[in-house]
Design a protein around this nucleic acid. Structure first.
Length: 400
DNA sequence: AAATCTGGCAACCGCGAACTC
DNA sequence: GGAGTTCGCGGTTGCCAGATT
């Protein structure tokens, strides 16, 4: 079915909205309510496309919009939800009252995706480095403007400058936001500033290489495992570490306190002093421990699989019921974004003879395992505690 | 002081789903 | 049930501020 243009575009104004147009639109919606976007411009006397009016309202004029910085808490939510939901900005925005999908999308594209690019997954053409270098090498010096983060930093140091030529508010009505104001995303916490500084430093200077170590603690526990005894907790099972199996579900179900965000890693002194080697230790139940060096070796023993989806998150699964030897040890990824997802199977799996057929087999095994609840069918036990793990795994697996 | 360059963000575009008649 | 319309979403574009050369 074809789609008619939302409106006649001839003679319509485009580009930035003026304060006057904002006032007209705002007053009209106040009087008549939102909706009927197609007829709204005509009724309101605006020479704008209905879609444009809607967008302006949704992204800017709505009175319930939160103005100002994206807080670190919001940023963490964005990161986690993006890892879980992907680029479903409207869904992500629905978890952040007062934030619009466009705002979040822009924030992700301009702030967060760049961070993740640092840790991007190697392309097929690129050989997997024997050591995962987490520290950026200094790029060629570039001409032109520095990053806005650096600018903000400078602003903080030098004092706030005025922004002289932004549009003025059309009236004094407090309900009417200024038209296209400068939105200063001053970072609100010292931790964030610290991360930004690291980011800037990482770009502008040649970093020495150090060692990054962290451990995967089961049930929220952190098990110091690296040679320098420094470890930071990665995401842990929301169910808290039951003997015989730990599976991470979708990110939203993960205990906030136990999840490691990208900022946590960036903020970690471990990264600052890093040499690029990530030593990952998994302590599953106390009776055995697995250690892998990220990017170089992945040992898969005793049915333990590890998938480090990205430096943002790592998930592990412990064989507890019949999927031993699975070459898809990481049953699902909490990160859907390809550029972010560091899929062990692409690299390590080959080393271990991983192939497509095996992957399909494992998918079937996964299904079989999930199906084989005690009652033999879904719902027979209404997913008690024992099956919650499987349910989570199934949901994540299907999402992936 | 001018030119160059880049990041950030507002706005646009096109598609598909949902809705209406 | 089908055609037309509206809405909402995600990707992309282009303007602008301002640091650097």
């Amino acid at each position: 079915m074809g789609r008619a243009p939302c409106c006649e575009k001839v003679g319509l104004k485009r580009g930035r909205w003026t304060a006057e147009e904002d006032a007209i639109l705002l007053n009209y919606i106040k009087a008549n309510g939102e909706g009927h976007w197609r007829s709204l411009p005509k009724n309101a006397g605006l020479l704008r496309c209905g879609k444009s009016c809607r967008l302006r309202w949704v992204n800017y004029l709505r009175t319930d919009l939160k103005r100002g910085n994206i807080s670190t808490e919001e940023e963490d939510v964005i990161i986690k939800l993006h890892a879980s939901l992907g680029n479903r900005w409207s869904l992500i925005a629905s978890h952040l009252p007062g934030r619009t999908d466009n705002e979040i999308k822009n924030y992700w594209n301009s702030h967060l995706s760049r961070k993740f690019d640092t840790f991007r997954r190697p392309t097929n053409d690129e050989p997997l480095p024997s050591v995962m270098n987490l520290v950026k090498v200094s790029p060629p010096k570039r001409k032109g403007r520095t990053s806005r983060w650096a600018m903000k930093k400078n602003k903080n140091l030098l004092g706030q400058k005025k922004n002289p030529n932004k549009e003025i508010n059309v009236n004094s009505d407090a309900a009417l936001p200024p038209a296209t104001p400068p939105v200063e995303r001053e970072r609100s916490s010292t931790a964030k500033t610290s991360a930004e500084e690291k980011e800037t430093e990482g770009r502008d200077s040649t970093a020495d290489v150090g060692i990054v170590s962290f451990s995967l603690g089961k049930g929220g526990g952190t098990s110091p495992s690296s040679s320098n005894d420094q470890s930071i907790p990665l995401m842990s099972s929301p169910s808290g570490g039951r003997e015989g199996g730990t599976t991470l579900g979708p990110l939203e179900s993960i205990d906030e306190e136990l999840s490691l965000t990208f900022n946590d890693i960036l903020d970690s002194p471990l990264l600052l002093e890093s040499s690029g080697i990530m030593n990952t230790s998994i302590e599953t139940s106390g009776d055995h421990e697995e250690s892998v060096a990220v990017g170089s070796r992945l040992e898969r023993k005793n049915g333990v699989g590890l998938e480090l989806s990205s430096p943002l998150s790592a998930s592990m699964c412990v064989d507890g019921g019949g999927i031993a030897g699975s070459s898809t040890g990481g049953w699902f990824s909490c990160v859907e974004e390809d550029s972010v997802n560091w899929d062990w199977e692409d690299h390590v799996g080959q080393e271990h003879g991983h192939d497509q057929a095996a992957e399909e087999r494992n998918g079937q095994e996964m299904l079989a395992w999930l199906w084989e609840s005690d009652g033999g069918e879904w719902g027979s036990q209404s997913f008690g505690e024992v099956d919650q793990e499987k349910e989570n795994a199934m949901v994540a697996w299907l999402l992936s």
